[in-house]
Design a binder for these strands. Structure first.
Length: 507
RNA sequence: GGGCCGUUAGCUCAACGGGUAGAGCUCCGGACUUUUAAUCCGGCGGAGCGGGUUCGAGUCCUGCACGGCCUACCA
């Protein structure tokens, strides 16, 4: 495109100019992609070490060797200022003819923004007070063939930001902020679990029977074994087998995969924290969940009082625990609703209130539907919604006082589910009956219903301790903490359709 | 999957009732030894792809591609 009549596009011209420089360098025996950089000092370390030192115009007498991406250049004839950036740190390099000589100055002048550059020299403060390296040597260590986006306004186009995250990270501080926050949040979750004596484990992502959640899986194929395998939709069943094996506290923080539609809140691969603790019940897990989220907030955002979508979210203190049925009774004004209310009556109520209904749904599913439609979006401050209907909770233990519900909770913050947890079902006969009910639903056309997992049932038959389990959506937690509203902003390389055109052409 | 909206130079943005598109950054050439969105002078570069209507389409209609938002399923 734009390439007809032999007239190169602007981009092609820019790339050609940079390629010409690269060719000229090689002709002079200079390698534009050397194996070693000679960088011994980090930009941020140098900036920090001299932050409070040196008066304008003063030299330190100390040499450093730094590296970074050239993000700005200000030439003054016999003097040039080069700005190097490494992550969020920037440092100015002064290239002076006096110091570098004609050949060195020429090399510095040939650099383009975007190039990776190493500079060695004395740390000084410029006359205008900017910390600088008075370069004795400036060296190209990685030539950029493509121009950087606008140095002031960065890269705005959302599609390009996701497709070329390297450019987004290079020029948009906001992108770096979000992923730095993600790192701190994940580290905080691991630290809290470690402090509580949890063991981090890794269980199969390739599973012969996809279990642990209600979702459609991705299917793949193993050539040597000649079998289909599924990318896991949850690690749950394997983790519970590890607890059955005698590790009392385990967790896994890693990817799961669900073959569902994409949205600002759903990516086909997403990161979930799942933890299981022997001798704990769902009340204990609520305490754990609150500790995890509060610690992640403190260590990633620096506070438990967040702003999200322009509204305050206060994660401090204790969080209310509300029974799901009570919330539905309250929002509908029907105080007599129960899991024994005839499904036909509930279906009518659903339709009246704009909730989607399908044939064959029982009271539990219908009440859940009312909750999800009418209540969940309105819960802004952190709330534990407890005691979910039995029929929609095939892996959760029956409630000790109420046969219609399970000891299950979801944590809702900012109108969204952040975690899902329960007192785990440990009775193999009950589990078999639940699987069979799921299998019947599956046979009736529910392709998200679970299948009977005999390996898992046999593991249960060896005996499981009572345990509490947790699933926490890590991407959504980061969205909450970072105050971003698309899951694609917290996943480095979100799933996108391939670009049109030759897929082998690197743009 | 369905609905609505978007796509102008490498990047960030304009303009106009349908009449042949303009700026900043980047880049190239020149000046400049203390700038920091450096400055000054000169220069290169453009309508996602394909049809249609029209004397004439970036602008109107339409098909496709990709994206965004809403919706459906889920975390």
């Amino acid at each position: 495109m734009g390439d007809d009549e032999g007239r190169p596009s602007r981009l092609a011209q820019l790339v050609a100019e940079r390629r010409a420089k690269l060719t000229a360098l090689r002709a002079r025996g200079v390698e534009p992609y050397p194996v070693e950089a000679g960088v011994t000092d980090g930009l941020s370390a140098v900036a920090a070490a001299f932050a409070e030192r040196l008066a304008p115009g003063e030299g330190s007498g100390q040499d450093v060797a730094v590296g970074g991406r050239l993000v700005a250049r200000r030439g003054h004839g016999r003097l040039a200022f080069l700005v190097l950036r490494e992550a969020d740190a920037e440092l100015q390099v002064m290239a002076r003819l006096d110091r570098l000589g004609p050949a060195g100055m020429e090399q510095a002048a040939e650099l383009d923004t975007g190039d990776w550059v190493a500079a060695r020299g004395e740390v000084v403060r410029s006359r205008r007070g900017e910390l600088s390296v008075d370069a004795a040597e400036v060296r190209l260590i990685g030539k950029a063939l493509h121009p950087l986006p606008d140095k002031w306004r960065g890269l705005r186009d959302v599609e390009t930001r996701f497709r070329r995250r390297e450019v987004d990270l290079a020029v948009n501080p906001e992108a770096r902020r979000v992923f730095a926050m993600r790192d701190r949040a994940v580290a905080a979750l691991r630290a809290e679990l470690r402090d509580r004596g949890y063991t981090e484990v890794e269980t199969p992502m390739l599973q012969p029977v996809p279990g642990g959640a209600a979702a459609r899986p991705f299917v793949t194929h193993h050539n040597a074994l000649g079998i289909d395998l599924y990318l896991r939709i949850a690690p749950e069943l394997y983790l519970k087998r590890v607890v059955a094996g005698g590790l009392p506290r385990v967790y896994e923080l890693n990817r799961s995969f669900r073959n569902e539609g994409l949205s600002p809140r759903h990516n086909p691969e997403f990161t979930m924290l799942e933890s299981y603790e022997a001798y704990a019940d769902y009340h204990d897990v609520m305490d754990l969940t609150r500790a995890l989220v509060q610690r992640a907030a403190r260590e990633a955002a620096g506070t438990t009082t967040l702003t999200h979508a322009g509204r305050e979210v206060d994660l401090a203190g204790h969080w209310p625990r509300r029974r799901l049925l009570d919330l539905v009774r309250q929002v509908t004004g029907h105080d007599d609703l129960s899991y024994e209310t005839p499904p036909g009556e509930l279906a009518t109520l659903c339709r009246d209130r704009g909730a989607v209904v399908r044939d064959g749904w029982g009271a539990g599913k219908l009440i859940l539907q009312l909750y999800e439609t009418l209540v969940e979006p309105t819960l802004w401050q952190p709330t534990f919604v407890v005691d979910y209907p039995l029929e929609v909770s095939p892996l959760a233990r029956r409630h000790r006082d109420d046969p219609h519900v399970t000891e299950r909770f979801e944590l809702v913050v900012a109108g969204r589910e952040l975690a899902n947890a329960f007192s785990e079902l440990t009775d193999p006969d009950d589990q078999r009956a639940r699987f069979e009910a799921q299998a019947r639903a599956r046979a009736a056309g529910d392709d998200e219903a679970m299948v009977v997992d005999e390996d898992y049932l046999r593991a249960m038959e060896f005996g499981m301790p009572p345990m509490g389990g947790l699933g926490l959506g890590v991407d959504r937690l980061v969205m909450l903490l970072a105050d971003v509203h698309s899951i694609r902003d917290v996943i480095l390389f979100p799933t996108l359709r391939p670009e049109a055109g030759d897929p082998g052409d690197p743009g």
